[in-house]
Design a protein around this nucleic acid. Structure first.
Lengths: 181, 181
DNA sequence: AGGTACATGTAAGCTGTTACATGATTTT
DNA sequence: AAAATCATGTAACAGCTTACATGTACCT
């Protein structure tokens, strides 16, 4: 999924500015799909406009820069539908955390513990946020589904780490073996 | 983690060629960390060699191109240790599948079912592979930990999808609402 | 007084992906 | 006979990230 398609997707949920699209990829259920920055969004939106897949309305604001609100066109909606019809690419993950865990035996126990604690804190916070959102108000089925999916994964991660961290920590207690090999 | 550090990491597990490093990111526990291709590995290895972080030994083979086997240098090992000491970046995910689920209401029920079935098949296969590996032979603690982590996540995904897919399918049965809005 | 939120955009640089180039051996 | 495995590398291209550029308003 390139940035253009991602923007089109957010716009099916209602008109939005570039700034608001960015927020959608931080807070809401789009946040679990992938990250994007302004440096990708603004050029993508300009391209979509040129291709007539979106239209724009500019709002003048007091004490703030103008706001450009984009709307899907009929062509844009069809373009998205076509993109959705293409074969689904496998999920891609990039885990700096797992990479570090791969080298538990090269790390000091305290450094390792700190990394794991930090990860647990992040997970616990994410879980709390999702639980709160689940219990507050109604959302479309797709959003509920995706939040629930993310919650299930975060819980599985946290539970697994909590139950198995001792394995890594005991491996880290014997760093001389790794060096000797 | 850039490709250079990733390669250095694999080399702590033993000397390897570019081809073998690629395999490590396909099959073994490195496969859960991230993907890399030859187009990234070979230039990275050349750079590491220039920086004296690895050394190379060339083996002539019959009926095959020469094999270049790389080894970590002491400097290379220190470089990796320093990289491991830097702040851990948050995991990055890119899920084409979740993006599609976000638009369940724009999809036909049959297309949606097909996507979910395909995803379940991938997950089931991955789970079977990991279960088999878990029951065969001994591996270092870090590898067992990471395979177990991946297994826990895949199971959580599969269970969640199986239990909640009806939510999405019923949303997809009413596509006229989405169009009307 | 400083940080965060609002708001858009450009340009350079870095990274990574894809395609190309080559070729023997083994498995299906 | 075709496909996969082994094996390395380059070049072009596409994409994304980071830094730069600008400025108000609100909250602490």
């Amino acid at each position: 999924m390139d940035t253009k398609t991602l923007c089109l997707g957010v716009l099916t949920h209602g008109d939005a500015s570039g700034y608001e699209i960015k927020k959608a990829f931080e807070d809401g259920p789009f946040g679990h799909i992938q990250e994007i920055g302004f440096g990708s969004i603004y050029p993508a939106l300009a391209q979509l406009l040129k291709d007539n897949l979106v239209t724009v309305t500019q709002y003048t604001q007091e004490g703030r820069p103008d706001k450009k609100v984009y709307s899907l066109t009929a062509t844009g909606r069809l373009f998205l539908l076509d993109a959705l019809d293409e074969p689904t690419e496998p999920d891609k993950v990039r885990s700096d955390f797992l990479f570090r865990m791969m080298f538990a035996h090269l790390l000091s126990p305290s450094a390792l513990e700190a990394m794991i604690d930090e990860r647990m804190a992040v997970l616990t916070e994410a879980i709390a946020g999702l639980e709160q959102r689940a219990n507050s108000g109604f959302a479309p089925a797709s959003e509920t589904f995706i939040d629930g999916y993310a919650l299930a994964i975060y819980r599985a991660m946290a539970d697994y780490i909590e139950e198995n961290r001792y394995q890594l920590v005991s491996a880290s207690l014997l760093p001389q073996r790794a060096v000797a090999e």
